[in-house]
Computed example of a mutant assay.
Amino acid sequence: MTTLDTAPAAVSTALLEDFSLEMTGKDVPALEEARATIPPGTRVHVTFLGNEDLPTRLAAARAVKRLGFVPVPHLSARRLASRADFERFLAGLRADGLCENVLAVGGDPASPEGPYEDSLSLIDSGLLRDHGVRHVGISGYPEGHPAIPGDVLWSVLRDKSAALAAQGLEGGVVTQFGFDVDPVLAWIERLRDEGIALPVRIGVPGPAGVRRLLGYAARFGVATSAGIARKYGLSLTNLMGTAGPDRFLHALAEGYDPARHGQVKIHFYTFGGLRATSEWVARFRTARPA
């Protein structure tokens, strides 16, 4: 079982002051259930899954706003079958005042289902700005991507940062989750060295069963060596246990230097556990040194 240690002041104030959460289109009941433990105005990302349709995604974004949070709908480039599909989604968001913030991702399909190969093509289309989008999140991969070479990832990040600036759009980077702080902080330092000053939201798994966490890690190419697992609090021999990100956040607080790393916040991947994650964060933020 995970233990809730005392949270360092740096985590409970700066890093967790404006955390964000992630949900699917079908998680609206779970969001309603967790509402009391989530600070008003929290950014809640709504994923773009292949097994969910446009009405489901729009209804989820509306629910996020209705419950007092900030919706961040995801746009999956390779899942958009046509320019008309892209415009239809953006128009639906705009009609309900839900389009100010989005996250642009390439998406899971190996081949595009339509004209958009990657998230850069969504930005370059001009449709985001035309539909009232003001802030665009883009993805970052501190431990690399299983299907994309590292030099390509850095080149694309530079291109997307430049494209956002050219379009007059604000931006931010949301990273893939991981279990080891060291590569995350090293990656952010390189990001700054590359001249990319966008704010970063570090992806962190919410509390979940070890088996589930390892399953997601394998799917997304996240390192889970025995040493990393021990650092994080995962037990590779006890897959029935649970783990939370307390050790990760403590280590992050100790290594985070605003002068070197710039603006950094936390993004929680809830893996279906919105209430468990929001309650965990509430407890962690209110813990105080003895």
Rank of each mutant, 00 (worst) to 15 (best):
P115S: 06
L54S: 00
R212W: 02
V70D: 00
A166K: 08
Y269K: 00
T3N: 08
R219Q: 08
V105H: 02
A218G: 04
R79Y: 04
V136N: 03
F89Q: 09
I228D: 14
Y232Q: 10
R230V: 13
L49G: 02
H261I: 08
R94E: 09
H131M: 03
A162F: 02
G203V: 04
D96R: 11
T24M: 06
D151F: 07
G92N: 05
G206N: 01
S20V: 07
P112C: 11
P199L: 01
H74G: 00
I138D: 01
V70I: 15
D53Q: 03
H145S: 04
W280R: 04
K231C: 10
L54N: 01
L122C: 02
D130M: 10
P39L: 14
R134L: 13
V46L: 01
P71H: 03
G215M: 00
R275T: 13
Q167F: 12
L214V: 12
F177H: 05
G262W: 05
E279V: 13
F86Q: 06
I38C: 03
H267K: 11
A59I: 00
S125Y: 09
R158C: 07
D151Q: 12
F268H: 10
R66L: 07
L191E: 03
P183R: 09
L185T: 10
G150F: 03
E32A: 00
T270D: 08
Y232H: 14
D27C: 00
A218H: 05
R247T: 04
E113G: 04
V174H: 09
F271I: 03
D108S: 11
G140F: 06
L98G: 09
M240C: 08
A197W: 02
A84Y: 11
A287R: 14
A162L: 05
P71V: 10
R35D: 02
E52G: 01
L169H: 11
V174N: 10
G221R: 07
K26Y: 04
W280K: 05
D193I: 05
G106I: 01
P289W: 15
G97C: 05
R129M: 15
A104M: 03
R212V: 07
F89N: 03
L90Y: 01
A290S: 14
D27P: 01
F220M: 04
E17Y: 12
G221I: 14
V156D: 07
I38K: 06
K26T: 11
P8F: 10
E100K: 09
A91R: 12
A282L: 14
T47H: 00
S161N: 08
R79L: 09
T175K: 06
P112F: 13
S20R: 05
D85R: 15
V173R: 08
T286I: 14
S20Y: 06
L157K: 01
L164Q: 01
N101E: 12
A276K: 09
L80M: 03
V210Y: 04
S278E: 08
S225T: 15
R247Y: 02
T42G: 12
E189W: 10
A287Q: 15
A226S: 11
